[in-house]
Nucleic acid binder design. Structure first.
Lengths: 186, 186
DNA sequence: CCCGCTAACTTGTCGGTGACAAGATGAGTT
DNA sequence: AACTCATCTTGTCACCGACAAGTTAGCGGG
């Protein structure tokens, strides 16, 4: 990756994409700004200019992840509000965007008070909530159950804890059948 | 922490305890072997002697965590095998030992092929499995559901995602009621 | 008693990293 | 053509993990 121009032109995106790839392969710990800079063919300090600091990079990734998740939930909701299908969608999101998912749920990595991130998080959260039947405490409990089971499944799978349990079966259908054990009728 | 003797005598334990405290406060990323050494009043290379490398420290913590969890599950099982109570116990473990829990489910931090860790993990897993009613695929699905919902709840809580949802209510009873939505009757 | 063995710990050093400061470049505007 | 400012570079600092080589002391055998 050699450059003829002084300005890269698309560094922001390139850095994030390189980071996502690295995270998927070897986790967020393996990410160094200097590695990203080398991969992009820029100087070692260029990444910090775009993101302020390393946590800024992860903040950008977490925000992007929340928006991607929100988009997906919104698409699902357009087809009718079925909480269980939303859960399956959540699980598929974690599998399709492992790096985003990983960063999103590691608050120690990013700037928790970032306003853009807060807005993105709210958007995704509100969409999820809008799919819950019932109201008040009962609705809260249903949301809690659905979110917990989907998040737990996605997380345990990502960390390799379900390899033996899921051996030889399709994770998506397995999740669907498992989620069927949840009583969510109003 | 100044020492008069050359040998510390209890360094291994002291280092782990200091690490646990730091992880609880600021996450595993904030842990540096050199910080731990300073806190314990030993030279900067002493920690590496005990654990081989940084991942070795986290491996020790993950192993200790699996054993602690297994102990707790075993105590519960002695009182009768109720899967839902085991789930509540799992959630309480995550709250009581946040640092252990954190490390246990971050495979990128430790040596995944460590035999001691594998043994400890097997012990905890077998205990959990022994509480599942039914057999074969049905039992697998029940185990998956119970583990997922408990793990998801514990994880989301730890990352602060349930703060608003749980505001003003006791997390343990809230989990119990939520887990009641799971149909686990054989 | 002391000799030797070995685990526990120290000292010194290396390459790599994040953060910061100060400077160079050039695209866009007027 | 001059200005402006985001983009990117160069240089530097303290800190970190890993490694190599040396020092200390607990301990069992003679």
């Amino acid at each position: 990756m050699t450059r003829t121009t002084y300005h890269h032109g698309d560094l922001h995106r390139v850095l994030i994409d390189a980071a996502l790839e690295l995270i998927a392969e070897r986790g967020p710990n393996a990410v160094s700004l200097r590695d990203l800079a080398r991969a992009a063919g820029v100087s070692h300090a260029a990444p910090a200019h775009h993101f302020g600091d390393k946590a800024g990079l992860f903040t950008a990734i977490a925000t992007q992840g929340q928006l991607l998740l929100a988009d997906r939930l919104a698409a699902d909701l357009a087809d009718g509000r079925d909480l269980r299908r939303l859960g399956a969608s959540y699980v598929r999101f974690a599998a399709d965007h492992p790096s985003h998912f990983e960063v999103m749920y590691r608050p120690d990595l990013y700037h928790q008070d970032d306003p853009d991130l807060a807005a993105a998080r709210t958007r995704a959260g509100d969409l999820l909530r809008s799919a819950i039947p019932g109201d008040g405490r009962v609705a809260d409990r249903r949301m809690l159950a659905a979110w917990s089971i989907a998040h737990g499944f996605a997380t345990l799978r990502r960390t390799g804890n379900l390899d033996r349990l899921l051996a030889g079966s399709d994770p998506d259908t397995e999740f669907a059948e498992m989620a069927g054990l949840l009583d969510l009728t109003p």
